[in-house]
Design a protein around this nucleic acid. Structure first.
Lengths: 208, 208
DNA sequence: AAACTGTTTGACAAAATTGTTAATAACTAT
DNA sequence: ATAGTTATTAACAATTTTGTCAAACAGTTT
């Protein structure tokens, strides 16, 4: 008897659902399509998850916890000096995007467009983020005071970082054909892109 | 008899459809919802546009031509010196985003996820874009040779510009609550954002 | 006014999608 | 083996959404 890992239908459905929802969104996803991908009848889907909505909530929970991890990673190490902390945070954040390339689009489309869901999620992290911003801002102000870096507005800088790190994944299908030869090797492109994003932010804050 | 502009139902439906499709996407849009917004029965929608798909194609055609305009504007004036041309192009592109804030998300979601549609669209502009890139690259190489700017990779720079200019609109609902007070006045925020994007790109290319 | 044209509607049909159920199969523990 | 539990299926029901149609309506021309 070989080592056949018999994965439960429940799990198969969950994985198929993740792929379906992440690529097509809630409205575009079809329960039948999910069941087919999982290799079961669609009645099974209802047996384990009751409704399409509830199955979706399971995927949602997964993505939300991944997003939380990503944000934490992006915040970097508070003990590092600001510039190093930023470099580190940007790189970590980018790596999380590489590891979960479908998440940004899904998150932007499905969570943010549902005010009830998003405001709930936001309330939980609001004070945390405010604290992080304030912390970073005072560090930045101090460094600027010492003439080490330019005077910078942290929220604006964060938006820049997010734009640079997230957009390529949201728009990958658009970028790929246009950039053609440049992106021939995805691995290499992503490494270059990460370095470029760090370079951009560094040049924005260092004094010239 | 007052100047009552009696807008045709056909036009009302088109406008309602644009709003519905741009905010909810094709899958999320409902023909009944469009008809209600337009203030007519949904049979009218089929009378004028036959099917939901055909109505969608009409909206699609509009958005594609808007995107073309935006890209043209973003290319700036070939007679200007490179740095000025870039500043000008970035600002124009950003202004187009401000004027059509729902377009980026719609375009990224609806067009790019449909390979048949996108490859068709792309074939038409591919050579044009390649030419533009090559043109810009040789200008950039020349300027770098003269020591005016850093040596830069144009495709990478374009991705940076697109990321910075487009992302804030794709993610506005996400950014807004997080940035709270900073974005209290949308007009002001957008002006600052535009300036910030130009500043970032300029600092990336000028020699230090 | 009658005939003609395009517009509008409500009721209905068709299709697609989600959700349910009763019967059966497979597995587990006594 | 048998009773009991969980898993699975096929057929079916319900719902939602899109699409059709004949009849009524409104404006225009003769």
């Amino acid at each position: 008897m070989t080592e056949i890992e018999k994965i439960s239908s429940e799990q198969l459905i969950l994985e198929a659902a993740e792929q379906e929802f992440l690529t097509k969104g809630y409205d575009g996803a079809r329960t039948i399509s999910i069941a087919q991908k999982a290799g079961v009848t669609h009645a099974m889907l209802h047996y384990y998850y009751r409704t399409k909505r509830q199955l979706f909530e399971c995927i949602l929970a997964k993505t939300i916890s991944t997003v939380k991890e990503t944000m934490l990673a992006a915040m970097g190490d508070p003990d590092m000096p600001l510039v190093e902390r930023l470099k580190d945070g940007i790189a970590s954040h980018f790596d999380h995007m590489v590891a979960n390339p479908l998440l940004p689009r899904f998150f932007l489309n499905e969570i943010i467009s549902r005010p009830e869901l998003y405001s709930l999620l936001y309330e939980r992290v609001a004070s945390f983020i405010r604290e992080f911003f304030a912390d970073l801002q005072s560090e930045a102000d101090a460094a600027a005071e010492r003439g080490e870096i330019e005077k910078i507005d942290i929220p604006m800088l964060i938006i820049s970082i997010m734009s640079l790190n997230i957009f390529p994944f949201v728009a990958y299908h658009f970028i790929e054909p246009v950039m053609g030869t440049i992106i021939a090797d995805r691995e290499i492109f992503l490494e270059e892109r990460k370095a470029e994003n760090i370079e951009l932010i560094m040049r924005r804050i260092i004094k010239h």
